[in-house]
Design a protein around this nucleic acid. Structure first.
Lengths: 151, 151
DNA sequence: AATAATTCGGATAAAAATGTCTTTGGAGTG
DNA sequence: CACTCCAAAGACATTTTTATCCGAATTATT
């Protein structure tokens, strides 16, 4: 409804990494397993986040991915601008390329306030807060795998 | 950000049909031209809306598409449930299949109120109202085609 | 009856998103 | 140095979405 799978994986992974002790690289394989997500595909996404400076990656033994220093406060919006592209915030709900107060689609004036709510929510949530919420144990980062039924 | 192209085309087309005199079939070709959208693809979408009872279609000369009687009050939500599928309203922003008050993702309690706003907006807007808005001339249904520069 | 205009239905194609595999090279360990 | 564990990088495959094409059926007009 709002985000691509790629974005969902990226956000989940970043939150998970933020829950881990900082400075200790997290394995792509572990993240993928924890989130129940295809490992190779996730690796692609994480590599992309590295390129954009959100993560650091380390090769070799004891390698893995770390949140780059200072990036714990990264907002969801900042992440989504990377994964969904820079037009993420600009969309008209009917798909018009040019839809503004001056050139409005018939939904425009009803949609804009709702969109603002969405954007401000995404702006105010950051990885650190979300990670803390997960660490309380009250929230889930991924669906329970079928295996969890066996515990 | 929220809707697939298919949904956007469907909504635009339905609003356009609703602006036309009722009872007179509207040509797929005319709609496509007006909205600047691929005609063959649009035809598929309209056929699908016929199947689901939103439109009537007429073959042959003087054929075309009409809003079915009583369907002027159709809400955007009803349209989107057809074009996006019945899970449209159920989505968790992080993509969890099972995300409820009891099994919440870390965004859940912040996201739900915003989602409610989106859904109630989509529920309260209907084709007739949107068509009226377009008929005032204050709103656009499609981007201006390049050709419009020549007028 | 012939013709022209239109939707219908199926086949096909192109593009984008998602997912997989394989090779490479860096980094620690013995 | 040789070995092993790891991510990087890129090629490849699959699936979904978007788009095109064509023949057949239908209808009004001539």
């Amino acid at each position: 409804m709002v985000l691509s799978r790629t974005s969902q994986y990226a956000v989940q992974a970043l939150i998970y990494i933020a829950t881990q002790p900082m400075g200790e690289p997290v394995l792509n394989r572990d993240i993928a397993e924890r989130l129940n997500v295809p490992a190779a595909y996730l690796a692609k996404i994480l590599q992309n986040l590295c390129k954009h400076g959100l993560l650091d990656s380390f090769r070799g033994r004891l390698g893995g991915f770390c949140l780059r220093e200072g990036m714990h406060r990264t907002s969801l919006m900042q992440v989504l601008l990377l994964t969904e592209g820079p037009d993420f915030t600009k969309s008209c709900i009917l798909g018009l390329k040019d839809c503004s107060d001056a050139t409005a689609c018939p939904m425009h004036f009803k949609w804009v306030p709702v969109k603002k709510k969405i954007l401000s929510l995404l702006n105010e949530m950051n990885l650190e807060e979300l990670a803390k919420a997960v660490l309380t144990g009250k929230y889930r980062l991924a669906d329970l795998p079928a295996a969890a039924m066996a515990t």
